[in-house]
Design a protein around this nucleic acid. Structure first.
Lengths: 351, 351
DNA sequence: TGATTATGTGTTATCGTTAACTTATCCAAA
DNA sequence: TTTGGATAAGTTAACGATAACACATAATCA
């Protein structure tokens, strides 16, 4: 199909009898242009339905005024809030936001990074889980001085800022809360093999157990099996559901569990109910995030609230700071406090 | 900050003692290049850490191999599934996907369209709700022959394909199901003023009432108030929650309600439980989408399942067909069947 | 053997825009 | 009158890549 040939500055220039540069000045509203010429040009612009070519413009100006956001786990309300906050902050400053999804693998991370770099975005905000291949590529991109900010985790590169909730302390407090209630067999739901090391919430859980001299039982730590990543539409809820089923099938099942996030907790809750057990009496549950639904489950979910919008705002600010910087920027990192929200899903352990 | 000057084809050419064109051939793997030259060039490429400039490439080639997806309501699992399916289909064909969010207004729709058009995407998939300003702009873009596909609704333009679930029939069957169970006072939750006309699910609801000679009670149709759009973090659940609260406060409250989607239904369920009423005995609830959580609520949610991934796949195929078309493409539309999934949240009305 | 095709590489022009520079006019201050 | 800043517009040369063409030389075929 023969697409309509796009109208260029030169077409407008020819039509209105001025130089292309003058048209450019009118369109961009900079430089000196007489009122008379401006109107003439504007008329031609409207008549010919001209729209400037962003590619050419960006190529020449060496900037796109566009930022990329790489999200893992789109379905998590955390991502939604984050993306919205980022977008709002950026658009207030005249920047566009393009989102790329990378749900499962380092390969997808890399594909997303490359797509963004290829389009010469002015900066990238990364909110995927840490993984080797992805980190390696990100490192190379950061080396090239492209502004990068990482959200929800850290990233060891002098040119990369990060903002995150205090997942470690959050995980610690969630577990501490269960311990305080008298629980001793406490499960952790949602730790895939590959993120045992990077998962701060898990580390907080382990730390709390350690502090109270509770031995770690590996069978109580459960998560997605390797293959789940490949199943399209495999949801976080399902991970929680299956994880809890596994915990329930243990000879000596836990009396409480901490789920890596609310969605996982919802799945776990479903599994518990399905088994005919009661929450919180048979099993207490703590989630993480405080998503909108958390207060609406029965019983309402005890969870760790993290500031989602704030992380997005800060990430956007950090990135803009780098984009606009004239001289070298010192690395910045922000760890934001979480807050334990106690609701009905946790109660003192039966003795 | 002085960013590293980017390495260009010419730098590589100079370094390896060949013409820029030869480097281009090596990098793109087309045209004839001797093995010897190829290696020499590749060595230089690695040494100098060259990456081609996508902007320049796209400008010259007049295509970006990138597609934009405009999503409303990111938090809905429907969007997640759709986006993933689209991305998978596209990336299998070597296309990148950039997602833009437009949660509330025509203004945001327009901003998203412009951002994408400015970046010369090869096509756009639109999955936002219909609204006047957005439609108008989309119409103009379609006039310029940019391939466009609309998902989840229709769009009257000869150059725009669409794929959608059969929302009308879905809404009809959901309501019919409630009527079959003996319900006569049936609420509808989630119809904002501005989409009364475009909301096919509502129209299906109205049609079912009409068929059974049940008078429409406007007070039973409830949704987000105008202002809610401006509240950041305002969730769909909340709309359902508040909508149901309003229904419950009616002098003669309904015995059943059909929610525009599952999230709205979850909110409604929360409101019912909070009021100390029972589902489905006091109030029966039907949702729409069959999101992962729907089968996990208590009681499990009766809902209308729509094919989410399939819509994404079809949308991607439709768009690629247009992008690759050599001659004019005839408009295509697909309406996909939905399926009523009866679970525990609906039961015969008490007499 | 001469003609033809395949292979390898370079040159030029261009994609559409804008930064930087140049030219020209006008008016006010010195 | 001269100088010079503000205003108004045009010219040129990129930004970085590649399509199109040209020109070799080598391999193949009639």
């Amino acid at each position: 199909m023969i697409r309509k040939k796009q109208v260029t500055l030169n077409d407008i220039a020819a039509r209105s009898g001025v130089a292309a540069m003058t048209v450019s000045r009118v369109v961009n509203g900079n430089g000196y242009v007489s009122e008379e010429t401006r109107e003439k040009v504007l008329a031609a612009v409207t008549e010919m339905n001209y729209r400037r070519n962003g590619l050419a413009r960006s190529l020449k100006r060496q900037k796109t005024e566009t930022v990329g956001l790489v999200l893992g786990d789109l379905s998590n309300p955390y991502s939604t809030e984050l993306a919205n906050a980022v977008r709002e902050s950026l658009s207030a400053q005249g920047f566009n936001l393009f989102i790329c999804i990378s749900e499962h693998s380092g390969k997808e991370d890399i594909a997303a990074f490359e797509a963004l770099v290829d389009h010469n975005v002015d900066g990238i905000i990364v909110a995927t889980r840490s993984n080797r291949d992805g980190n390696e590529r990100l490192d190379r991109i950061a080396d090239s001085d492209l502004p990068i900010v990482v959200v929800g985790r850290d990233f060891p590169h002098k040119g990369v800022d990060y903002v995150s909730a205090d997942n470690f302390t959050g995980g610690f407090e969630a577990t501490q809360h269960l311990i305080d209630l008298g629980h001793r067999r406490i499960g952790f739901i949602g730790a895939a093999f590959e993120d045992r090391h990077s998962l701060k919430r898990l580390q907080g859980y382990l730390k709390a157990l350690e502090k109270h001299d509770i031995a770690v039982d590996e069978r109580l730590i459960t998560g997605r099996s390797e293959s789940a990543a490949d199943v399209p539409g495999y949801s976080t809820e399902k991970i929680g559901y299956e994880g809890m089923k596994r915990l329930l099938s243990l000879p000596n099942r836990p009396t409480a569990a901490f789920a890596r996030n609310d969605l996982t907790a919802f799945g776990a809750i479903a599994a518990i109910k399905e088994a005919g057990l009661s929450i919180p009496n048979d099993i207490a549950i703590v989630g993480f995030d405080d998503t909108p639904l958390a207060s609406h489950t029965t019983p309402a979910l005890t969870t760790v609230r993290q500031p989602m919008r704030l992380q997005g705002q800060i990430a956007a600010e950090m990135l803009l700071r780098r984009i606009r910087a004239v001289e070298d920027v010192r690395r910045e990192d922000r760890i934001l406090d979480c807050e334990l929200i106690v609701r009905g899903s946790t109660v003192a352990a039966k003795l």
